[in-house]
Design a protein around this nucleic acid. Structure first.
Length: 168
DNA sequence: CGTGTTTGACCAGCGC
DNA sequence: GCGCTGGTCAAACACG
């Protein structure tokens, strides 16, 4: 798996070098997808090539609203994971600061912020309306501090993740 | 008592 | 300009 991507988001998860992979292979049974959203930042587009790009885009096509992005637009990384629980324990401490019902989705979207001092990483968690077994977690920003608890759990989750390449 | 969640209000961007 | 929608705030609340 593209561990370097995880590294980008979870600096503490190191190890395996990038394996070029997302293209073409397993869209079959994968339940894991990584989306990089950088709408104006096309320089990152190469990253998003092999990834599913379903989260934000679909929303945009619908309502096309984003707030405040005129100024600061941070890249967002969305994971699609197949999970019974919404909360993926990635080792960081999150504080929920909002929940909103989204259009065309019976499930609400939850907004979390990293509680570490000085760390302003945010994430959103929502389920796919078409498949309630799939949880989409969108990270915004990158952690610049170590994980606060054991990553065993999350790494275990990672080992079970596969590329979800439904749109390629 | 410290920390995190819930929940309604508020705000801003966009389409009509 | 108005209304809809997504995103955030903050007070009240729950829980260890």
């Amino acid at each position: 798996m593209e561990n370097y991507q995880y590294q980008a988001i979870f600096p503490c998860l190191s190890s395996t070098p990038p394996a070029s992979q997302f293209q073409g292979d397993d869209r079959s049974n994968g339940f894991f997808g990584l989306v990089t959203n950088s709408e104006l930042d096309n320089h990152v587009s190469h990253e998003s090539k092999g990834f599913v790009n379903g989260t934000e885009t679909s929303e945009m096509s619908k309502s096309g609203k984003r707030k405040g992005e005129k100024k600061v637009r941070k890249p967002r990384y969305a994971f699609q994971t197949r999970s019974q629980v919404d909360i993926l324990d990635d080792g960081y401490r999150w504080r929920k600061y909002g929940q909103k019902a989204v259009k065309n989705n019976k499930f609400p979207r939850s907004y979390y912020r990293c509680t570490h001092q000085g760390c302003h990483v945010k994430k959103q968690v929502q389920r796919l309306p078409k498949d309630e077994g799939v949880v989409v977690t969108t990270y915004e920003g990158m952690h610049s501090h170590p994980i606060e608890k054991s990553t065993d759990n999350f790494e275990h989750i990672l080992t079970q993740m596969q590329i979800y390449n439904a749109f390629n």
